[in-house]
Design a protein around this nucleic acid. Sequence first.
RNA 1: GCGCCUGUAGCUCAGCUGGUAGAGCAGCGGCCUUUUAAGCCGUUGGUCGUGGGUUCGAUUCCCACCGGGCGCACCA
Length: 507
Amino acid sequence: MTKTGSSAVTETNPELLQARLEKLRQLEALGIDPWGGRFDNTQPIGDIRRLPAEPFREDQPGPLVRAAGRVLRYRSAGKLLFLELWDQTGRIQLMIRVNKVSEREWQIAQLIDLGDLIGVDGELGKTKTGELTIQVTRLTYLTKSLEPHPKDVFGLEDIEYRLRHRYLDMIYTADTLRRAQQRVLIIRTIRNYLDRLGYMEVETPTLQAIAGGAAARPFITHHNALNIDLYLRIALELYLKRLLVGGLEKVYEIGRVFRNEGISPRHNPEFTMLELYHAYSDYHGMMDLTEGLILACVDALYPSRIIPYGDKMIDFTPPWKRASYAELFREYVGCDMLDEVKVAAAARAEGIDTTGKEHAVLVHELFEDVVEEKLIGPIFVYDYPAPLCPLTKRKRDNPAIAERFELYVHSMELANAYTELNDPITQEQTFSRQLAGLSEDESMARMDRDFIRALRFGMPPAGGLGIGIDRLVMLLTNTQTIRDVILFPLLRPESGPPAPQKPHHET
RNA sequence: GCGCCUGUAGCUCAGCUGGUAGAGCAGCGGCCUUUUAAGCCGUUGGUCGUGGGUUCGAUUCCCACCGGGCGCACCA
């Protein structure tokens, strides 16, 4: 194995490894299988901690409990051992006394290393200092850990180390496990909420011949038997809309999408989207749904609807503020967004380069630079300038305005919804216009003729909603970086990667 | 992709303007039957991310590369 002399990969200290291998041999010599086996009827440590417990007494044994988990602390006091046992529900102290276990078990206990997995039966009680403790009567080896574990009391500080050893991060950084559990709860809450409203959850293709539904660069892959390039999807939209044509009136998907773009504290190349469509509804219907859906998540996680994020508190008490794009623009930029002269002046004042830019583009750049940071929210911003939203139905009485809203919380776009365009003629023109305008990067927008054909058969008018699940989880778990709500975010390979195989497809 | 910051023992960190590395914990050998980051005695452990340069001498200064972080760009 050649290492290209790079990266922060740490090799295990060979002496520490040897010490553990030696204990492994000693365990085997005692007739113990160091890799353990089935160990049934354990109680979660969190449950055990809630049991009533009295100080230990020789004449009156406390309740018997059985737990399994990882040893995170080990203190030997001669003929007495204190350990700390960890499982995903909590930690508890174990006490092993030489005269309370068999001689063989006492020997085994001497061979425990930090990080080993053990199972114990014992009596629940309290030590002289009042610490809730299981006094072990039977000790079962479940798995030897050969790698030295990090020192529990310091936790893990190195971000790269935490990401590359997420399993350790889960054990030694309480927030990591908490977030993983809360993420599950959020997604389950969303499913339950939508299922109760009669939405059907579906799964649409990840491999697509044309990656559509968003303006983003796709990943390219290859199918050998068909000998065609395929794209990883960048959105769920176009297939879900086909299902509207097919008669599913309330449909959603929670799934991974892939965008071949930069990485940042708010961006991972693969992330999870909820997209949802409701036939015969519109963007106002989606606003109500969004509010209810996110509130259900807040209620699932917090006793209050005012929750912390960073150094701020976010108040989710409904009803949430709703303001039009034009209103907010006037309020924070200080001029009417239709006034081309004033908008250009305001843009220049913000240091935006105005040369050769369309009016609508300037308006939106100003909105992003000036307005977004004010939107602590939650606030629904609705009625967008039509040029910004090619896939959206225009207002009947004002074709310059698109029926779209975005939900902002803490200046972050959390949800995006439209009254969906179901007019195949306009849709086709929009595709063509996008293609004409973006000839430089042909992969950004592709004419999806099959989708146009589906629209021609008649897609019901509908409201559609997209929510970035990762960002929702960030917000609801008070997490500042997307890497900490995705268990395994993308990182460069840690040792020198094999030379990338030519040919590249682009860039 | 560009800019700034960063990489010292298994973990967490020191190391002043250049003199070839140090602590705590973990490990190893002892002592201890109520510890709480247990304590006491002894002890092992590092090509200071990698390569090159300057220098009598580089963890320290310079350059390149590799990994990571933050910001910008692309985007959600």
